[in-house]
Computed example of a mutant assay.
Amino acid sequence: MAAALEAIAPHRYEVDLYDPMSRERSVLVGRLTALYGPVTRRLPALWGALYHATDFEPVVRTVQGSLGRGLRRKVRAAMHPQPALVASFHPLLNHVALDVMDRGIPLVTVITDWVEFHHAWTDRRATRIVCASEPACTLCARRGIPEERLFRSSGLPIHPNFKEAIRRYPTRRAARQALKLRPLAPTVLLVGGGDGTEPLRRYARVLAQSPLDLQILAVCGRNEALARRIREDNHAGVHVFGFVNNMPELMLASDLLVTRASPGMIAEGLACGCPLLLTGYLPGQEEGNVREVVRRKLGQYVPGQAQLAKAVQDWFAKPGELREADFDRARAAGNPNAAFEIAGMLQGLVRD
């Protein structure tokens, strides 16, 4: 969002990116937040139970009241000098910021989930709440958010780099040539998130054994051990990457995107015209993403290795015009301009 705001209004605003939970591990909420990654990777059922047990407005307020004291102190200090606008991208910070802000400062909540989301995201005091889909707007309305406070963006905000890459590489062949990949080979992108996950290795192996002459791009994120193990497997056609800064190019080079049903990855993949093969989801906020992808024929849910291998083989066996229709449907559902739309709305709320 900061990059999009700078793009539409160069050098006009000073944007302070502030995360009180990551800066101070002494804050109890910060310690709990640090457990998010390990818990969701290793104990997703526990995460789902916690999510559903706390997904009620009275519980949210109780939790915020008991755990938010240290956060309030830090957020209050961050309000000096007084900002022209506050935008929140984290469900634990919306209520906290509104509790300590001076009246007259707009607060915008940008919900970073696609279809379904926790009650912690919705506070009726917010000036605007940004929703990336019609189901999200409907859910906000059911929770009592007035229609005039909702801003319906055309999708989740993704980095402006995606829009530039889409302009630079109009075809998959062009993106593959830029990456020094085989330009005509059927290409599948495997993404395991920023921290990488072990199933990626199994997916690479089962796809490498496919009768298709696949080109497999495995992005392992910061998990160097996983990247090393996949390289040591030495499967033909598998290209291994660590943490990358060229995800737009990798997506634009790929025919299919294999990923968990995380909203950010879905948004980026659709913007690049990638049909989706979803291997799993985080209980709670990501369950609806799977239903939405399947309902809109943007991809398939493939929770097992055999299902993944069959889905890939079946997709490449489809006639070319049907595969092109899948590309078009994905592009129509994704929008690289969403961040610019939201930035324009933020600019309109700022008083010069």
Rank of each mutant, 00 (worst) to 15 (best):
L257I: 07
G237E: 06
A204C: 11
A236P: 10
T171V: 04
L276G: 07
A267K: 09
L184M: 08
R202Y: 12
K180A: 14
L278A: 09
F162I: 04
R201S: 14
G242W: 02
Y169R: 08
P275A: 12
D195N: 14
P248A: 04
E224D: 15
N234F: 00
A236T: 12
L282S: 06
P263Y: 02
N234E: 12
P199L: 10
T259I: 02
A225G: 13
S210W: 03
V258R: 03
E164L: 11
A261Y: 02
M247K: 10
E198M: 12
R173I: 01
I166W: 05
Y203S: 11
C274M: 13
A225R: 15
A267N: 04
M251D: 03
A236C: 04
E198L: 11
M251E: 14
R222I: 00
L256I: 09
V191S: 14
N161K: 13
M247V: 09
N223L: 06
R202T: 12
P186F: 03
R149D: 02
D213N: 13
D195L: 15
C274I: 08
N234D: 15
C274E: 10
L207W: 07
A178V: 00
Q209A: 15
R222C: 00
V206K: 03
S153W: 01
A218K: 07
P170S: 10
E249H: 04
L200T: 08
T171L: 03
R167N: 06
R152D: 01
P160F: 11
T171N: 07
R152C: 08
L250S: 05
V240N: 08
H159K: 10
E147R: 02
L282T: 14
D233S: 14
V244Q: 05
C220V: 03
N234L: 01
C274K: 12
L214S: 05
A271N: 12
P199M: 06
V258K: 07
S254I: 02
L217G: 05
A178G: 01
H159I: 01
I266E: 06
P183L: 00
T197Q: 13
Q177D: 06
F243P: 00
I216R: 09
R168A: 13
G269V: 11
R176D: 04
D233E: 15
R205C: 03
R176Q: 06
L257F: 02
L212G: 07
G192V: 08
Q215N: 13
G196Q: 07
L257T: 06
C220R: 11
Q177H: 04
L278I: 08
G264D: 03
A175C: 02
N234C: 10
